[in-house]
């Protein structure tokens, strides 16, 4: 029984890893294409990230002379592995997550920190001053966005704690959408939480305007400056997987709806319809949280990143939390 359970766990994990890498790179390609169109360019083909990865795999892998070798080589591996591990806890495509249970909501919150911490370790280990500056900036960015992210997740869990069930599990939150359990005040509050989640995304994923840690034009790639060949390919894939995972988390927290029951489908057709609908939702989240912001604005300075997250976004998230609290107190229904 246990042996069979572990066997299926491993098989499913490998399938999830394949899905994560494929769709991570695919969404990266779509992202680049859309940004190019927004700037009035033709842009690279959508399969461009796959070609980049294949090319990086065939390049020489240099480890700098003064680097701490084992840490330098381990960092990209940990970064990629923990990015894929995130998707074992987040429900994707209408299916339940593979590993689920009590408290996985908090676990996800911490798992999102691990790729960044791995990259910080790799940056410090690579003996380059650019990488050291990038690593310091990454730590500062992490400190900035963790607070609003935690506020958002706690607010949702607190609001749903009125219902019977295991609040801190992803499956419970995915089956009880926040929109159906709030009144008018709570609706406004939930929208504010969604806004802060969308603004946390570019910080979490190191995208413009919060990509101070990897700023190519000022610190030459920052954390990744000394990486080449296979290690760089792993960081490149991990970046795509992280985008897919974060968009999946936003979908699971805010839009866990399926389309199959609406179209009155069943059997295999319902699974396929739900999965395609999930991919569309992930695309929309990525479009508004990453692509649109990336094409529209320039990079912040590091001080501006801290102010933006600690003051503006935390205030919006806290106001959302307060509105959800008042919603329970006054109880004005909208549905």
């Amino acid at each position: 029984m246990t042996g069979e359970f572990i066997f299926w766990l491993v098989v499913k994990s490998v399938i999830i890893a394949g899905i994560a890498i494929f769709f991570g790179l695919l969404y990266k390609g779509i992202d680049r294409k859309i940004v190019a169109h927004m700037q009035g360019r033709v842009g690279p083909p959508i399969r461009q990230p796959f070609l980049d990865v294949i090319k990086l795999m065939s390049k020489e892998n240099i480890v700098p002379k003064h680097a701490i070798k084992w840490l330098f080589n381990a960092a990209p591996l940990i970064c990629l592995a923990s990015s894929i591990m995130l998707l074992l806890y987040i429900p994707i495509g209408g299916f339940d997550a593979i590993l689920e249970g009590h408290g996985d909501l908090i676990l996800i919150l911490y798992l999102f920190a691990i790729p960044s911490i791995a990259m910080v370790a790799g940056g410090f280990a690579s003996s380059s001053p650019y990488a050291a500056i990038g690593a310091q900036r990454e730590v500062v960015t992490m400190i900035s966005y963790e607070l609003p992210l935690a506020v958002v997740i706690i607010a949702i869990a607190w609001k749903l704690s009125g219902i019977e069930g295991d609040v801190f599990s992803m499956a419970f939150i995915a089956s009880h959408p926040i929109w159906q359990n709030v009144g008018i005040l709570g609706l406004i509050g939930a929208i504010m939480l969604l806004i802060s989640m969308v603004v946390v995304a570019p910080g979490e994923l190191a995208k413009i305007p919060f990509d101070v840690a990897e700023a190519e034009t000022e610190i030459a790639g920052g954390l990744t400056v000394e990486y080449s060949g296979r290690n760089l390919a792993m960081l490149y894939i991990a970046d795509g997987v992280k985008i897919f995972a974060f968009a999946s988390l936003v979908v699971a927290l805010f839009f866990p709806y399926g389309i199959a029951s609406l179209l009155s489908l069943n059997g295999v057709a319902s699974i396929i319809a739900d999965f395609l609908f999930f991919l569309l939702k992930v695309f929309l989240v990525m479009f508004f949280a990453v692509t649109l912001i990336r094409a529209g604005v320039a990079r912040f300075r590091i001080t501006q990143v801290v102010t933006a997250y600690w003051v503006t976004i935390t205030l919006i998230a806290l106001l959302g939390l307060v509105l959800l609290m008042w919603d329970t107190h006054f109880n004005v229904r909208w549905l």
Binding site: R32, A36, P45, Y130
Partner: peptide, 12 residues
């Protein structure tokens, strides 16, 4: 960039 040519910040 339509040919996949990209300017990078590091010689590595």
């Amino acid at each position: 960039e339509r040919f996949g040519i990209k300017l990078v910040g590091s010689p590595r």
